[in-house]
């Protein structure tokens, strides 16, 4: 317990504080090495309200009807959850926190529909990151669970599948980036004949914003589904077979067994891996960086990539500010997730 804490503490507090300070300053090179000038919240201001606003948050336009509908649904849901909390007799402090959280969520969704579900709008790096995280996470979990279920069936050759399914995770993310650059290349990549056969020689998915984002997400899903797979597989293997067996013998259907026995037993570990992948997913960088360098335009640029591009040119202040805004975003999303989902399904939070 304590050694672990000490190691993490030792290597995390210092960078954390230094980054916070950097995000409030500008770094320049000087005779003695480098100089750090304190400039206050300028970096944050640039990102949120200044010249980098369209890059970071996006170009906001009036939402389309779909956008309005999504926004309305979220507002209703939040309002409903809040009234439930009021009726449920939550203490004033809890209510206040919930109100703040709810308002943040509503605000975020409002920006989101203005950027994504609006003609002429364009999502900035914040929303591109959120899109990567939530779409990627959902598909990875569903695929990972399905594959883990299949791989626990008593089928000949399942050991082969188990090892094969782990493979993508073992390739260095940098390598996966280059590999997908090779695969998605439509002038010399392996899918050229496929496109040619479909009469789409001139087609390329890396010049269309959504095509490029999908290419990035496919790479991400390809690489990280194995993580979901291996953890869920281990959890499934840890289940008591006899309960399942007894239920099946007693005439329960497989879907009933899944719904009432397997799924509840998997929930604790599921929420954990979703949280871990969520936190890791927010840091997505290698795929967009290598596949498209954030292009076309800024369509595939994630927040970490934005921080990285600034960092590469020694704009450490703005890079740290972006990283800190990412930290705040992840903290909000993760806290909400832990409070709303994880505490409900597990006792070990």
């Amino acid at each position: 317990m304590w050694p672990a804490l000490a190691v993490v503490l030792f290597l995390s507090i210092f960078p954390l504080v230094v980054s916070l300070y950097l995000s409030l300053s500008r770094l320049s090179f000087a005779k003695s090495g480098f100089e750090i000038t304190f400039i206050g919240p300028t970096n944050y201001q640039t990102l949120l309200f200044g010249g980098e606003r369209t890059h970071f948050i996006g170009v906001l336009k009036t939402p389309s009807p779909i956008g309005w509908a999504i926004f309305a649904v979220v507002v209703v849901l939040v309002g409903w959850a809040f009234t439930r909390a009021v009726r449920g007799g939550v203490r004033p402090l809890g209510l206040l926190l919930r109100a703040i959280g709810g308002l943040l969520l509503v605000g975020l969704i409002w920006l989101f529909v203005q950027a994504v579900f609006a003609p002429g709008g364009r999502p900035g790096t914040v929303f591109v990151t959120l899109i990567y995280v939530f779409i990627g996470l959902t598909i990875q979990y569903v695929l990972g669970l399905g594959l883990a279920m299949l791989a626990t069936q008593r089928l000949p050759g399942r050991r082969f599948f188990r090892v094969v399914f782990l493979l993508p995770m073992m390739i260095t993310p940098v390598g996966v980036g280059y590999m997908f650059q090779m695969l998605t290349d439509t002038s010399k990549g392996p899918f050229l004949p496929v496109f040619a056969a479909l009469g789409m020689e001139g087609f390329t998915w890396v010049t269309d914003p959504w095509g490029a984002r999908i290419a990035v997400m496919i790479g991400d899903i390809w690489q990280w589904t194995p993580f979901m797979f291996i953890v869920l597989l281990a959890a499934l293997e840890g289940l008591d077979v006899e309960v399942t067996e007894a239920a099946l013998v007693d005439g329960a259907s497989r879907s009933q067994v899944f719904r009432y026995i397997t799924l509840p037993a998997l929930l604790p570990v599921s929420t954990t891996i979703v949280l871990i992948r969520m936190i890791e997913g927010f840091k997505i960088i290698d795929l967009p960086n290598i596949l498209t360098n954030g292009g076309p335009g800024t369509a595939t640029e994630s927040m970490t990539l934005q921080a990285f591009i600034d960092w590469r040119t020694f704009n450490l202040g703005r890079s740290a500010a972006t990283a800190y805004l990412l930290l705040i975003l992840v903290t909000i999303v993760a806290t909400a997730y832990v409070n709303l989902v994880r505490r409900r399904v597990t006792t070990t939070v």
């Binding site: 990412l326 903290t331 832990v338």
Partner: peptide, 21 residues
């Protein structure tokens, strides 16, 4: 939760401090 939150800061933000350390 504090432990897992230590993974939230992207590596670009920690690499220079770690380098100096």
């Amino acid at each position: 939760f504090w432990l897992i939150s230590q993974r939230m800061l992207p590596p670009v933000a920690v690499v220079i401090p770690l380098y100096v350390l």
